[in-house]
Structures are given as C-alpha cells and as structure tokens.
C-alpha cells in the first residue's frame, strides 16, 4: 500500500531510536510489515532483524509510554475510571471474532478477524489522540485503512454514512451492568462516508506492535485521529453502510455536549469546559502537568479540512 503522508514530527520531539526500540522488546516491524494478530510474537521476533533498517520510521511526536496507553483508558463498558478498563476487562475474551459488513454494499460479508488481517495486513501509524476531556496521547497503532475494507464491500449508489456497532456482552463487561449509571449499550458510532474513506481513518488491530489489549478495544477498533477519542469505537462487531446519519452513543446521552462530527477544534469549547489546550499524558510531574495548545483537527487540518468546506464547525460540532 502506498505510504500516506501525514504530519511529521519536530526533530526535537523524536524519542531516540535506541530507547524506543529497546522498550519494544517485541518489535512490530517496519512500516508496512504485516503481522498475524494471534501468535504475533513469533512473527515480530522474525521482524526484529529488519528493525534497524527502518530509517524512515515516521514519528510525529514523542509516543506516550506504552504502560500509559494501556492503563489510562475510557472504555465505559468496563467502568468509568481510567484504570477500570485495564483492571476489569479480564473476563472479556474477544477471540474468536468476526465483523459483519452490511447495508448499502454490493458485497455484504461477515469477516473472520484472521481473514481481515490476511486480506488487508497491518501497518504502523503513529497518531495523536485527543480526548474530549482535554488530554492527549501519541499512540503507535497497527492496523489497516477502513477505506480498504469499504472498497472491498463496494458501497452502493446513495450510500452516505457508515454506522459502527460495538460488542454487547454484559456478562463479560461490568460497565454494561450498571443500568441507569451508564450509556445505552451497545456503544454505537458513525462517520460520513467520505470521512470513513479518508486514508487517515484506521481500523486498528494492534498497538505498540502487539495485539490490542482488551482495555484498548480488542480485537479491532476505529481510530479517527482528527476527531475526539470517543469517535474511536472499540471492539467493533458490525459496520453498516447507510443513507442516513446514524445515531452515536455520546450524542444520544447529551446532544448539546457531543456532536456527530466531534472534530477536534480549540475554538469550539465543550459546553462544560474549554478545548483550547490539553494535558499531555505521560509527561510532566505530580506538581506540574504538561500542557500544550490544542490544534485544529488535532494537527491534521492539511489532510482533512477539505472534508468540511462550507460547513459551520460551531453548528456541526
């Protein structure tokens, strides 16, 4: 797959290679290297030898430490505390997994996870992640473009949106047993078709070169780096191409607070807090948090601003 260009790092912010490689004892491999999800360790070890050659390894900013990426999560299916998903997701056994693609497509199909990986492979994408709660990370995902899967499904004329549905397993997900003190389950999300087809839009199956841990949305999740994190629906079971704007979980919960688009925008505040800046997770100290100004479209304006030409981003927040 042709490399897609996206914002690159300032040299000063790049973690020294040796440091980064050593922390990833299990190396995912270079850009474009494909991994089998299960048993990825053997493949990864085989790829370690080629890691030194990865001089072109793209790194927008300093990646957030792996332990923070996997222990500071919003995944309300497991609980509302940031530590809950890592702590309380042990009962969730995602494999075997399949994803159903249906709706306005010529080739509806239920894909086994292995077949998705075999067909579309995995590449590494280092993306910024901006949570609507005004904190951010930089995360090395592994996965493939949603566009590739959608092209295989072949959307019909009149298709305008893509709806996503997450998993519903109350017996394995304590957050789904909380009744009124929760969202409505299963979690649902949606994108406009052109957003879904954008090359930045990723279906992630791994992080830091390893299969997605349960707390990060195992085994397959959406990553839309120019939107607030809640758009990145986790543990996807179904993708439906449709002609109307699909419902989205947080919008159903509080429509005046969480829009359908949810594009990162420092000029459009959340009704209850400012979005002008963000806390950088993994940096700073107990008595001094690290903060930085938030960028329009999370720094991906050059790539995605065109999708929203002529729209009032205050109205369609």
């Amino acid at each position: 797959m042709a490399a897609y260009r996206y914002p690159q790092p300032r040299a000063s912010e790049i973690t020294p290679r040796s440091y980064f490689l050593s922390r990833r004892a299990v190396m995912a491999g270079v850009v474009g290297t494909t991994l089998a999800l299960a048993g990825s360790e053997q493949v990864a070890q085989a790829a370690t030898g080629t890691a030194q050659n990865a001089s072109g390894w793209p790194a927008p900013e300093k990646p957030t430490p792996q332990n923070d990426v996997t222990h500071y999560n919003n995944f309300y299916e497991f609980g509302t505390d940031k530590g809950d998903p890592a702590e309380l997701s042990g009962a969730f056994k995602p494999l075997p997994w399949s994803v159903q693609i249906d709706g306005l497509v010529d080739n509806p199909r239920t894909w086994a996870l292995e077949d998705l990986l075999k067909q579309f492979g995995q590449e590494e994408r280092l993306y910024r992640m901006r949570c609507v709660e005004a904190w951010s990370m930089v995360i090395p995902w592994n996965g493939f473009s949603l566009a590739a899967l959608l092209k295989a499904a072949a959307p019909k004329m009149g298709a305008r949106y893509v709806a996503f549905t997450s998993v519903l397993r109350p017996s394995e997900m304590p957050g789904q047993r909380r009744g009124l003190f929760a969202l409505k389950w299963p979690y649902v999300e949606g994108l406009r078709l052109d957003e879904a087809m954008h090359p930045l839009t990723l279906l992630a199956t791994g992080v830091y070169g390893e299969a997605l841990p349960t707390q990060n949305g195992a085994p397959i999740r959406l990553v839309v780096p120019w939107k607030y994190g809640f758009k990145g629906i986790k543990s996807i079971t179904r993708i439906t191409v449709t002609d109307r704007q699909p419902p989205t979980s947080w919008n159903l919960m509080a429509p005046e607070e969480y829009g359908f688009y949810a594009n990162v925008n420092p000029a459009v505040d959340h009704p209850r807090w400012s979005q002008a800046s963000e806390q950088i997770i993994g940096e700073g100290s107990l008595f001094h948090t690290a903060r930085k100004p938030t960028q329009l479209f999370n720094g991906y304006a050059e790539q995605v601003a065109g999708l929203y030409q002529g729209m009032d981003l205050r109205k369609d927040f």
Binding site: P65, N67, D68, H71, Y72, K82, G83, W135, Q279, I281, G282, G284, S285, L286, F287, T289
Partner: peptide, 18 residues
C-alpha cells in the same frame, strides 16, 4: 497519595488522581 505521586506509582495521571 503525594508520596506515590512523586514516586510515579499513582498511574498515568497522578495529578488528577490526587
């Protein structure tokens, strides 16, 4: 809490934990 926060054992966001 403060001792753990300074030792780095209060999780990824010690400030908000405190």
């Amino acid at each position: 809490d403060i001792a753990q926060g300074m030792a780095g054992t209060l999780g990824p966001n010690p400030t908000s934990a405190c």
